[in-house]
Write a protein that binds this DNA or RNA. Structure first.
Lengths: 145, 145
DNA sequence: TCAATTCCGAGTGAATCAGTGTGAATTAAA
DNA sequence: TTTAATTCACACTGATTCACTCGGAATTGA
């Protein structure tokens, strides 16, 4: 039950962009340094985020990346689906194109994984980048006391 | 967010044994055929289940495997932890020995993964093999109507 | 013009996955 | 006592995925 670094780094990068939403575009190098991720690798990952419309890019000098829409409107689920594919503990309960399983009888283990999938999806879809920003703010407040 | 076949097949095998709990030991070959899993491969997997005390084996002719305890007392979480390791979407929130992360600031993405971990664990720990047997019964009843 | 950037595609070493195969040890039944 | 059914142990393997690296082209503000 592990995420690959694609999802892990993808969320980190998106959160970083969220923290600077509404300012100039952020160069990848900056994100990579702040989040401690290989720049070359992150370049590949952000290409995915761009192609699926979660971030916009500005080319050339002073260029960089910005969130394609408000942090309120981007959820962890959005990012994970883009970076890791459809949520599916096992192939036969994939959110899209579930694999046929040749189980003659009604498959109980499958219904277990369907519940796991739904629980995962519900949780991840319920957390937006804006929620994460608020949590970060709250943590910051508490740290100052 | 995918399970490997270890967890997938592991649960199938355990559920199969649960369906025949209280009778003679079930030979691996039977389980493998019923669940449509390579016998050689399942042999490896069940070794893990045996070494961690979830099943007992009876050697020799007429031998096989039986659950080590009542289906009511074995959860999906128990099986998945044994087959796939500690529940941990990312290493820094592993149930055991979470990896140090070098994030200077308090890490918000990490707290997201901690929530995902907890939600996963809570759900999987709440489903026992006995629950699955009851679900199978119910499905069977409905099929007969 | 130049420096900073994104964009694109190829390559790579290591690890993991999902098995297979061989043969020894054990035990109930014939 | 032999035989057949079974668990047990361990080594091997081909394919795929992971987590990158590298080189260079295209774009654009200063």
């Amino acid at each position: 039950m592990r995420l690959s670094t694609r999802g892990h780094y993808g969320l980190k990068a998106m959160f970083d962009l969220a923290q600077h939403y509404g300012t100039e575009p952020i160069p990848l190098k900056t994100v990579a340094e702040r989040q401690n991720i290989s720049e070359n690798y992150l370049e590949q990952l952000i290409a995915t985020l761009r192609k699926t419309g979660l971030v916009k890019s500005v080319r050339g000098s002073q260029g960089g990346y910005i969130l394609a829409r408000d942090p309120e409107k981007i959820t962890v689920g959005d990012i994970i689906r883009v970076m890791e594919g459809p949520i599916a503990p096992v192939d036969c309960v994939s959110e899209i194109e579930p694999a046929e399983c040749i189980q003659s009888e009604y498959c109980i283990t499958r219904s277990v994984w369907a519940r796991v999938r739904d629980s995962l999806a519900e949780l991840m879809d319920s957390i937006s980048l804006a929620d994460m920003l608020r949590d970060a703010d709250k943590a910051e407040q508490e740290r100052r006391i």
